[in-house]
């Protein structure tokens, strides 16, 4: 295990940012810390980097107790959401910074920086100032700068958060490919579940200062540990007291399986069809179907249908108080 976080807690005044968090982050993998804004994931990343001090608990990096170490002694690479480019230095000097601090020989620095600039496709921008680069280029420069010191772990704090959607998507693919080339243990923070599911080998879901679940993208998606993870990782709808994914629901135009319902609305969204139905108990349920499935059913608004969860699909029991108030009506539907 590359990074061990043991019982870490952190408060800012009255606000509990992290509450007794323990996580093991495996070596050589790409791990995402996923959660809503203000959930404590960035704080955890900054504690790993040493930019923030934990109130209690222990941080171990590659077997070394780093809890009390200042950031410059941890040998971590850190990439900030807003790039943190050294504005007065050229791209080359930015990338060379860590090596210059380590007093490496000049020709070694030059060679290494050239390698890294090639890796992030910025060779032709070496003599420019950060202000002359686009956001995506600046973030690639920041990444090269962090990689230059050959860190034991690479930490990225919402690295693509400040970029527009298209560049974000490109950089996401690129980060995945880069990681497959470089293999440095990488942890990145994101609030975008799609980004985490697409890029990460392993996802740690953090909410309100606690770890909700740790697992592979498949684990999380197929076997969510609780309602929060289920809701956070994708669209959900409620059938009876179960929280399910709309595309895991099956509709039948006849028969006796599942729950009886009436179609209230049909919406076409690109390649998928969203069918809103109301069960006989009055519970609204959303079902998404492919176009072909929809056509095969031959249903329209006001059609009588039966709704059923496809066997083997993930579901969690609704437990939050707001949801419980709806329970009386559910009882009638299931009976």
């Amino acid at each position: 295990m590359s990074i061990e976080i043991v019982n870490v807690g952190k408060r800012f005044g009255d606000f509990v940012a992290l509450d007794d968090v323990s996580v093991s982050i495996p070596s050589g993998r790409l791990t995402a810390l996923l959660g809503p804004s203000g959930g404590g994931k960035s704080t955890l990343l900054r504690i790993i980097a040493g930019l923030e001090r934990a109130d209690v608990g222990k941080v171990e990096i590659e077997g070394v107790d780093a809890t009390g170490l200042p950031p410059q002694k941890r040998n971590v690479g850190f990439v900030f959401q807003h790039y943190a480019a050294f504005k007065h230095l050229t791209v080359r000097r930015n990338v060379a910074f860590g090596l210059e601090i380590r007093k490496r020989p000049k020709d070694e620095i030059r060679r290494r920086v050239d390698e890294l600039l090639a890796l992030v496709h910025l060779e032709q921008f070496a003599e420019r100032l950060p202000a002359q680069l686009s956001g995506g280029q600046r973030q690639r420069m920041a990444l090269a700068r962090a990689l230059a010191v050959e860190p034991t772990v690479l930490l990225l704090d919402e690295p693509f958060g400040a970029l527009d959607a298209k560049v974000r998507k490109e950089l996401r693919d690129w980060l995945r490919r880069l990681h497959d080339e470089v293999h440095v243990t990488t942890v990145f923070v994101t609030h975008d579940q799609e980004e985490a599911l697409e890029v990460a080998d392993e996802i740690v879901v953090i909410n309100e200062g606690r770890v909700e679940q740790i697992g592979s993208p498949d684990d999380l998606y197929d076997r969510p540990a609780n309602e929060f993870v289920m809701r956070f990782l994708g669209p959900v709808t409620q059938l009876g007291d179960q929280l399910v994914r709309p595309h895991d629901l099956q509709l039948f135009s006849g028969g006796t399986t599942g729950v009886a319902a009436r179609v209230t609305r049909v919406t076409r969204i690109g390649f998928e069809i969203r069918v809103d139905v109301a069960t006989t108990g009055g519970q609204p349920v959303t079902v998404t179907l492919t176009r072909n499935e929809f056509l095969a059913l031959g249903i329209a608004v006001d059609s009588e249908v039966r709704v059923q969860l496809a066997p083997g699909s993930p579901s969690t029991t609704v437990s939050t108080p707001e949801q419980r108030t709806a329970e009386p009506s559910l009882a009638t539907t299931t009976s």
Partner: peptide, 24 residues
């Protein structure tokens, strides 16, 4: 952030001040 970046790249307080804060 620039100062934090410098620290994470191995610069101590004096180096960070001289190379990053002061030029800025």
């Amino acid at each position: 952030e620039q100062e934090q970046a410098a620290r994470s790249l191995g610069a101590n307080a004096v180096q960070t001040f001289r190379r990053i804060t002061l030029p800025a």
